[in-house]
Amino acid sequence: MITTSFIYVTALLVIAAMLKVLENTTRWRLFEYLPAIVSLYFVVMLCSTFGVWEKTEEINNAYKMLRNNLLPAMIFLMLLDADLRQIKQLGGRMLLAFFIAAVSIGIAFVVAFALFQSYLQPEAWKTLAALSGSWMGGTGNMVAVQLALDVPDASMGYTLLIDSIDYAMWVMFLLALVPHAKRFNRWVKADSQILEKIGANIELEDEQRPVNVGGLLILLASALLMSALAQSAALNLPTSSYFTPTAWTVLIVTLAGVIGALTPLGKIAGASQLSMLMLYLIIALIASRANFAELTQAPIYIILGLVILAIHALIMVLMAKWLKLDLFTCGVASLANIGGVASAPILAASYSKALIPVGVLMAMLGYIIGTGGGLLVGKMLSFIAS
């Protein structure tokens, strides 16, 4: 059993490296459905379940330190390749998809609660209302709804379990769908030429810029410095249950990355490679805290969460077919609500690095509507419960 932070991080990197090598060197059809980055989540989660590492204080501290510091650095690096002029071509369909996703999540909570009410505790509607705030915005919104409805912390256990387990499954599912984007877009008759053009332009620019050690050092130093400065500044800015220090940090590095892309820093090759390395480590870190054994602790609540996601997915697919929305638009709109700023940019990056700002901006919208949406869902759930 691993008990030290250095071996813990090394193990995560070894697993990531082995999966990526297998994906690049073999022709296993598995990787067509579960790309290395998705397989990484599953394999690391499996290792966590079998207790390959112990959650010692040293490992817990390493997890928090790396996740909290690398996420802003990764977003900054990814945004250095962003071209806002290309993003403008996406138009208002992204906003439309975001609000469709938010409304469908609200509907899904109401329908699922009506189906499962007899199996739940009497006050379960309050904790589910708090969860709906999180799945329309973020953790800050969940806390705000919890406070507004006077939900005790002790009652939030099952809600947090749904938020972690079902959310993890949803992220893995959306990442696994990325290779099938063209097939989905053909089925809904979506025009994906703009997305493909943006992705092709970014890849062409990367090929034309050679990577060198000096440039990598500059980029790495800049990203880590920006992460440190953003987190320091966030602690000194006004916060609330709506806008947390994490939200400030993401906003600051987003602005810094967009501005940096317009400077000579944005011309240095290697930002995409460094950001992808960080992405693999962040995915592994998140998966290392999950545990398949937790699925047996509250099966009704886990199933309830899956039903909510299934209803949400069904509505999104129907709307995509009607409005001819591509898979990227639907996926990022969904994860911007359910996952927020920590995961929407990751999914966006799996399509094209140029689309990172779209994921960030859509996730930030969630903070605006999350609390109001959660309270509205809570009102409807209370009506059903009474």
Rank of each mutant, 00 (worst) to 15 (best):
L66I: 12
R67E: 13
N68L: 06
N69S: 09
N69F: 03
I75S: 00
I75C: 00
L77C: 07
L80W: 02
A82E: 02
A82M: 05
L84F: 12
Q86G: 12
K88E: 07
K88N: 01
K88W: 08
L90D: 00
G91P: 04
G92V: 10
G92M: 12
G92T: 09
M94K: 01
M94Y: 01
L95V: 11
L96I: 13
L96D: 01
L96V: 13
L96H: 07
A97Q: 05
A101T: 03
S104Y: 11
G106W: 01
I107N: 02
A108H: 01
V110F: 08
V110P: 00
V111K: 10
V111I: 15
A112P: 03
A112G: 07
F113E: 03
F113S: 04
A114S: 10
Q117T: 11
Q117A: 14
S118A: 15
Y119A: 15
L120M: 15
L120Y: 09
Q121T: 12
Q121M: 13
P122C: 04
E123K: 13
E123V: 09
A124V: 01
W125I: 00
K126M: 08
L128V: 02
A129K: 08
A129E: 04
A130H: 05
L131P: 00
S132I: 02
S132L: 08
G133P: 03
G133I: 06
G133W: 12
W135L: 03
M136A: 11
G137C: 10
G137F: 08
G138K: 05
T139Y: 13
G140Q: 05
G140A: 08
G140C: 03
M142H: 05
A144E: 12
A144I: 11
A144P: 03
V145A: 11
V145K: 13
Q146G: 14
L149P: 01
L149K: 09
D150P: 00
D150H: 09
A154Q: 13
S155C: 10
S155H: 13
Y158E: 14
T159M: 15
L160M: 14
L160Q: 13
L160H: 10
L161E: 09
L161T: 12
I162Q: 08
I162E: 08
S164Y: 08
S164E: 10
I165S: 06
I165D: 01
Y167H: 12
A168F: 15
M169H: 12
V171Q: 12
V171H: 10
M172P: 00
L174I: 09
L174H: 07
L174Q: 07
A176W: 04
L177G: 05
L177R: 07
P179E: 13
P179N: 14
K182S: 15
K182R: 15
F184A: 07
N185F: 03
W187I: 02
W187E: 02
V188F: 07
V188K: 10
V188L: 10
V188Q: 06
K189F: 05
D191A: 01
D191I: 01
S192A: 06
S192E: 06
S192I: 00
Q193A: 08
Q193Y: 03
Q193P: 00
I194H: 02
I194C: 06
L195H: 02
L195F: 06
